[in-house]
């Protein structure tokens, strides 16, 4: 089979800026089209409905960005990683940009399960009060850069015991401790923590942050970014 001989290229990319608002499916479609535009010799599955041999990493929720996201692309011939990166870069939109490429053996775990531990960085901002200009016409919120930004308090570093998550078959309470890896850390208006995915499921980072901020109605997460992914 051609798959056995295919060259497996792991591409690291970022999902940033307003493109953090793309869903996982939208990112996947956009990346497939990027690969086609880049003119890389991608492998095509041999099934009834032939499609590109590509495997995506763990999904990010809508609204969450990432700086170290990845996908695996199977090529029919060897292309120097740097050349592949350049081709992808030229075919990418600014906020969905590849940063590196490397070849992997075919036995390496799939990108969706290879890195169960994700580290997130959350930027906190004050919610504009009703009637205040914060975020209204002509004005960049830019509160993070301004003087008026919140500081992570000790109180914010205490994780909520449980997080209520909505699923297709109703609501479910998840215990934070089952997913948190290490403590919450704060610096300025930035909050950092790591969550671990289990085979049985994971805790959505946006749900975790919402629970964390539930007791702070003046605060909002102005950006949530996955900054690292690693094995357990």
């Amino acid at each position: 089979m051609s798959e056995a001989q295919a060259f497996r290229l792991r591409v690291t990319f970022r999902k940033s800026g307003r493109l953090a608002l793309l869903s996982h499916l939208e990112v996947a479609r956009a990346l497939e089209r990027t690969v086609r535009r880049a003119g890389l010799p991608f492998a095509v599955s041999q099934g009834f409905s032939p499609h590109m041999k590509i495997a995506f990493g763990a999904a990010l929720p809508v609204g969450v960005g990432g700086t170290q996201e990845c996908f695996d692309l199977y090529l029919t011939r060897y292309i120097a990683p740097e050349k592949a990166r350049e081709a992808l870069e030229a075919a990418s939109v600014a906020d969905l940009m590849p940063s590196s490429c490397e070849y992997l053996g075919n036995k390496a775990p799939a990108p969706s399960v290879a890195y169960p531990v994700s580290t997130y960085l959350v930027e906190l901002a004050f919610l504009p009060k009703k009637g205040e200009p914060g975020g209204t016409e002509d004005k960049e919120p830019g509160r993070a850069e301004g003087l008026n930004k919140p500081c992570v308090s000790a109180e914010l570093l205490v994780p909520p015991e449980t997080v209520l998550v909505k699923r297709k078959n109703g609501e479910k309470e998840l215990a934070s401790a089952d997913f948190l890896v290490g403590p919450l850390e704060g610096e300025g208006n930035m909050l950092r923590f790591s969550l671990r995915a289990h085979a049985s499921g994971s805790l959505r980072v946006d749900a975790f942050v919402a629970a964390l901020l539930a007791a702070h109605p003046d605060l909002e997460a102005s950006a949530i970014t996955r900054i690292a992914q690693r094995p357990v």
Binding site: G17, D95, E123, M190
Partner: peptide
């Protein structure tokens, strides 16, 4: 680059 600051909390609201 719409978002020159590489990721570290680059806000969605940045207009670019």
């Amino acid at each position: 680059p719409a978002t020159p600051d590489l990721g570290l909390g680059a806000s969605i609201t940045a207009s670019g």
